[in-house]
Structure formats: C-alpha cells, structure tokens
Computed example of a mutant assay.
Amino acid sequence: MELNVTRQEQAELERLILEHDRIAQRFTRPRQMIYLFVRRAGNRGVGAYVLLEALKTYSPNARPATVYRALDYLLRLGLVVKIDSQSKFFARSPHSSQRLCLFMVCSVCGSVHEFNDPWCEKKIETTVSAAGSLLDRKAIEISVLCENCQPASAGAS
C-alpha cells in the first residue's frame, strides 16, 4: 500500500531530501513516512507506538527499532522534537530546526504550540553561556493554559 502524499507534503519532502543529501545523510522512505505521520499529527503530537502502527499499515514487517531509528534521525536534524511531559513527538515549524523554540504545552488539553522569539533565544543563550554551560537542547517546554482551556479552568475555580 502506498502512502498518499499531498503536493505540499511532496514539495516539503523534496526540499528536505535535497537539503539532507547535501550533508551526506539519507532521508530514507521510512524516515519520510515517520516525518509525515508526525507532521500530520499537528499540535496533538504522536507517540512512538502509534507511529509504529501507522508504519505497519504500509510496511507490515516494521519493528519498533525502525521507528526509533527514524525518530533519532529526525530529532538530530531538528525536524521533530520530543515533548517529554507527554512522551510524544511533534514536527518543528519549517526553517526553525536550528533555532531555540519554546513549546507551550497546555496542561489541560495537551495541545502544543511552537513559539520563536529572537530576544528570548538570545537571552537564554547568553544566560547559559554566562553560567559556563552549553545549550544541549534547542527546545524548551513551558506548561500553560491554552486559550481554549482558560474559560473551562477559570469556571472550575
């Protein structure tokens, strides 16, 4: 069974293939599929075993190691991020893979939104550097109440 890919998704895959072939890394078909599954999950994210089941639809012999290797590749390239508080993977916004991003995680509904701010990025990098440390991850989770959950939460108080 072949995965249906939209024109926009195909254009994004072609851009990524060109970009990563240039740095001698192979953006293989399983990696492409896992990337699309994560991207399609949107701000709800997706867990590794859900990804495995989706991959098995197209490749019945897929194993957990295939998914974890693909995720490791996508994480190293900054194309996806793991939100630890949810144990789920989220696609990064195009062209933000090398930027420091704040991920606002709603503590009620679990939705995740990526936020880029050059001032915050510079401030955090300066603070980390002043402490004699190096920034290990370019993703920071912040627990929030999203716009949709604020009224429900306020009404419960």
Rank of each mutant, 00 (worst) to 15 (best):
K82V: 04
G42V: 02
G47F: 01
D72M: 08
P60C: 06
L77T: 00
R63Y: 07
A62F: 03
A62T: 09
G42K: 08
V67H: 01
A48C: 05
L74W: 05
L52K: 03
Y49P: 03
A65H: 02
P64M: 09
A65K: 03
V81S: 07
V50K: 09
L52Y: 08
T57C: 11
N61E: 15
Y73G: 01
K56I: 08
Y58P: 11
D72I: 01
A48K: 07
V67Y: 02
L77F: 10
A70G: 13
T57Q: 15
A70F: 00
G78C: 12
R69D: 12
R69G: 11
A62N: 06
Y68I: 13
Y73N: 05
P64E: 04
V50T: 11
R63W: 05
L74G: 02
Y58F: 15
P60K: 05
P64I: 06
T57N: 13
K56D: 04
P60S: 09
V81C: 05
V81Y: 07
K82W: 04
K56C: 09
S59D: 13
A54F: 09
Y49D: 14
L75R: 12
R63C: 06
K56V: 10
A70K: 00
V81D: 02
Y49Q: 15
G45S: 10
A62Q: 01
A54L: 14
L55N: 01
N43I: 00
S59W: 11
P60R: 06
Y49W: 12
A48D: 01
G42P: 04
R76Q: 14
D72L: 10
V67F: 05
L55Y: 07
L74K: 06
L52P: 06
V50E: 14
K82A: 04
L75Y: 05
G78W: 12
K56G: 07
Y68M: 15
A54N: 10
D72V: 02
D72S: 14
L51W: 02
Y58S: 13
A54W: 02
A54G: 06
V46D: 03
L55F: 09
K56F: 07
Y73Q: 09
E53F: 10
L79N: 00
G42F: 00
Y68P: 07
N43V: 00
T57I: 13
V46E: 04
A62E: 01
T57A: 15
K82T: 03
R69Y: 10
S59Y: 13
Y68G: 10
L71F: 08
V67I: 15
L75S: 09
N61R: 15
G42C: 00
Y73R: 08
A48R: 03
L52R: 00
R44E: 15
L77H: 08
L74I: 04
N61Y: 11
Y49H: 13
Y58M: 13
P60M: 05
V46N: 02
R76V: 03
T66Y: 05
R69L: 14
R63H: 11
P64T: 06
N61Q: 15
Y73L: 15
L52D: 01
G78I: 13
K82G: 01
P64F: 02
P64H: 03
T57K: 14
V67A: 09
R63I: 11
R44T: 12
A48Q: 00
A62W: 01
L71Q: 04
K56W: 05
L79A: 01
T57R: 15
N43T: 07
Y58V: 14
L71W: 06
L71R: 07
V67E: 00
L77Y: 08
R44P: 02
L74A: 02
Y49A: 13
P60W: 01
